[in-house]
Amino acid sequence: MSERFPSEPFSIEISNLVKHYHHQNVLDHLQLTIKRGDLCVLVGDNGAGKTTLLRILASLIRPDQGEIRLINNTENENSSYRGKIGYLGHQSMFYNDLTAAENLRHYAELYQIPNAQEAAEASIQSVELTGFKDNLVRTFSRGMQQRLSIARALLHHPSILLFDEPYTGLDQKAANFLDAQLRNLHQPDKIILVAAHRPQRMLSFATHIAWLQKGKISHHIPIDQISDFPDLEDYLRGTV
């Protein structure tokens, strides 16, 4: 990562984002700004639009209206923007017939990482899967696939991390591992947005919380101010 700090985005600014699916407004003129160094938890009911928002931010889908701007940077219409994104979706994005090392090497090559093989192996080591690097991904459990997905999302040292329901399907040990990873990733030069249906376990280390309701961000506040918003507090209590 030679082009680190000065060119890294200071903040990600989402303005007037609109997305319809089947004549239904999933995102309705949504506004949100997340600053560098923030670890923001995005909460909301099922179907509130959390995944849609993250997929738009990852440039996997195009919004109907609105724009996403990286302050100190360009818009998300080019490939250099995608190089700054580390996205963890609902599915692993791996090829079942390739080994863990082959999958990560493939991604390392696509991201033009020098010494792709070494980078892939280091990444596998970072998620404690070295002993399984030559195993086919189809033999991996859900927890192992999720760990490998984290390695994939972080392979190119992205400055913007978008994690969509990363705890889904993880057992306690794997969830603790993910907690530790998120704590480590929370650095002053990174923007982290994590969509979580049950956000309780993240409230101890997240900096901000954003509540997505009816296609809009109704609250976006520092974690330590939750108690000032009884409706949000009630909502969070209901997610336990």
Binding site: S79, G89, H90, Q91, Y95, Y107, L110, V137
Partner: peptide, 18 residues
């Protein structure tokens, strides 16, 4: 189908390539 499995196509789309 191999790209659909595990949504691998998304992995390709995320890469900073044309």
């Amino acid at each position: 189908a191999s790209e659909r499995e595990n949504n691998a196509l998304d992995g390709l789309l995320l890469a900073p390539v044309d």
